[in-house]
Design a protein around this nucleic acid. Structure first.
Length: 575
DNA sequence: TGTGGAATAT
DNA sequence: AATATTCCAC
């Protein structure tokens, strides 16, 4: 793995401070291992008796980051006991024996790895990987010693902690929970942490190493025995102390990200992929929103801001020059960018419909949407676009004489496509909708991001609302369009899916009632706008008759002609 | 103050 | 292009 100088500087004494619980009945052996570990600046606590070890563990569980336990065929049931007890401590089994079943058992019981003695320095040196792996892949029950570790590592990698959070274990799991029927099918490929932090032992060691029986190692960023002289605290020690005293190790993250980010494609080994996030660290107002919005990581993705590769700390960006201590914890957290997935958007549209286009204001929409973590700003922003789209697209389409949404060109495949996944019904008043999995990570659908349905080609079929995925008249359930199927919230996809013609027709002929409602409302409030049903000529008469047919007879006096909004104008406050 | 919205920034 | 931010009249 190629590391730049900066990187090396940053990580050179990385494993330093990692606390290792060493359990080996053979004191000789234990000493040996301990000595090696200490040479690498791991902090070792040796136990010759398993109960002792367990006792120590239970009293100060969080004091260890990793355990190395010796197994021998003999009376070692203890080893298993330890293994079974210390579940959340990454445990590496070591042994002289080569017994597949023993190995198997250890692994099955949760051992992080099974190493064959003798232990090479390389093997020992890299045990930190298990710690990191555990930190990022363990469930919610992260031991206290691992949490700070995780945060810091994430920080150093410019990986928003919260992102790391949901990337790790439970990542896009949500999907299953909310859409029971969403089986296997085309589910969005979850961006799992594993992809980023492959289990230490096996595959990921592409750098070659660590298969239980071979004893070799590879060079890691910290390949530095000679660096022992460095006075700096090891990362681990820093971590646990939570003494994020902005020691440069933290601040430098930016530079690091730069250098890590830059590397050639092929070299993106374990670190490569992780570093996707560059973002200026503006702690100040960043953290402001943080609390409020970061609450639901499951919903929002934390994208990094594009662009600014290197200038993470560009001073020019900071407001008022208020120097905020770069707390590693938030320093890497960014404002999250809401990804308006089809589901989220659908919710939005539904809320808008429910309120009526005229009553639809951010705060109310937000309320109706019941999406935890979503902010009024998010909604406002979306609403703005939504309105713009309506204003621009709808009328325009109308000009063509016939509505585009009437003649079906490219049929929004999302509505007709096979991978429809039924979701539990939306309860307008019920519990907040389960959040959807994928609005998470850019990388999840990087390839589809461009298709957000805004293109000129996009034509809602049922008018509904140009934008929206109309709420389909599916009794009791809605549809969720897996994001990876190249149709984002607007479900644009122009394939011809013959198999779903019936469905298409159904939709064409039976717009959802909510859609109709909306159409009616809009027709009432904005008679000057083209009638949306698309089935009628856009003449006033038609509109009126349609309305009457719907039982609506009272029509408010036409408000002054269009000029929609526009009030004061604006001066530039650019840059 | 806080909110809705348009204008702008990223 | 999609979102976030900023700005400003209420």
């Amino acid at each position: 793995m190629v590391c730049s100088a900066d990187e090396l500087v940053e990580w050179r004494d990385f494993p330093k401070g990692l606390r290792v619980l060493l359990l080996d009945e053979d004191s000789q052996c234990a000493e040996e291992i301990k000595s090696k570990l200490e040479k690498m600046e791991y902090i070792v606590s040796t136990f010759y008796d398993e109960n002792e070890a367990l006792a120590a563990l239970s009293s100060t569980a969080e004091n260890f980051h990793v355990a190395i336990v010796e197994v021998n065929t003999g009376a070692n049931h203890g080893s298993y006991k330890f293994l079974e007890t210390a579940r959340d401590l990454p445990t590496i089994m070591v042994s002289n024996i080569r017994c597949l079943s023993t190995m198997m058992k250890c692994i099955a019981l949760g051992a992080a790895e099974f190493l064959q003695k003798p232990l090479s320095e390389d093997k020992l040196k890299n045990i930190w990987q298990h710690v990191v792996h555990k930190a990022f892949n363990a469930g919610g029950d992260l031991s206290k010693s691992l949490k700070p570790l995780k945060e810091t590592v994430a920080s150093m990698l410019q990986l928003p902690a919260n992102e790391a959070e949901h990337l790790s274990l439970k990542p896009l799991k949500t999907e299953q929970t909310c859409s029971p029927s969403a089986e296997n099918e085309v589910k969005p490929k979850p961006l799992v942490m594993n992809e980023r932090f492959p289990a230490p032992s096996t595959p990921q060691l592409e750098q070659g190493e660590r298969v239980a029986d071979q004893g070799d190692g590879h060079e890691l960023p910290n390949s530095s025995e000679e660096k022992e002289t460095i006075a700096k605290d090891g990362l681990f020690s820093k971590l646990e102390k939570q003494s994020f005293s902005e020691s440069k190790s933290v601040e430098n993250t930016c530079d690091k990200s730069v250098c890590l980010d830059a590397p050639a494609p092929e070299e993106n080994s374990s670190l490569g992929p992780i570093i996707g996030a560059e973002e200026e660290v503006d702690s100040a107002e960043g953290s402001k929103l943080e609390e409020g919005e970061s609450t639901n990581h499951s919903t929002m993705s934390c994208h990094s801001r594009k662009g600014e590769k290197g200038e993470c700390t560009s001073p020019s960006k900071r407001k008022k020059g208020i120097a905020v201590p770069p707390n590693p914890c938030n320093s890497s957290r960014k404002k999250m960018k809401v990804d308006w997935t089809p589901e989220l958007h659908r919710r939005f549209v539904q809320a808008v419909e429910q309120l009526g286009i005229d009553q639809a204001i951010p705060s109310r929409i937000l309320e109706l949407m019941k999406v935890e973590g979503l902010t009024r700003h998010n909604v406002a922003s979306h609403l703005q676009k939504y309105r713009i789209h309506r204003r621009h697209v709808l009328p325009k389409e109308d000009l063509g004489g016939r509505r585009n949404w009437v003649h079906r060109e490219p049929l929004p495949r999302a509505y007709t496509n096979k991978p429809l996944i039924a979701l539990p019904p939306l309860q307008p008043s019920g519990c907040p909708p389960p959040l959807f999995p994928v609005w998470g990570h850019p990388s999840n659908y990087a390839t589809t991001s461009s298709i957000h349905g805004w293109g000129p080609t996009w034509q809602p079929r049922v008018h509904a609302d140009a934008w929206g995925c109309p709420v389909l008249p599916m009794p009791g359930s809605c549809v969720y369009y897996p994001q990876n199927n190249a149709s984002s919230c607007f479900g644009v996809d122009h394939g011809n899916d013959s198999g779903s013609d019936a469905w298409k027709n159904f939709l064409d002929l039976h717009p959802a009632e909510s859609v109709i409602d909306e159409v009616v409302k809009e027709a009432i409030s904005k008679p000057w706008l083209p009638l949306p049903l698309g089935l009628n000529p856009p003449s006033t008469d038609s509109v009126l008759s349609e309305l009457q047919r719907q039982g609506i007879t009272s029509i408010p006096p036409p408000p002054p002609p269009p000029p929609p909004h526009h009030r004061r104008h604006h001066h530039n406050h650019n840059t």
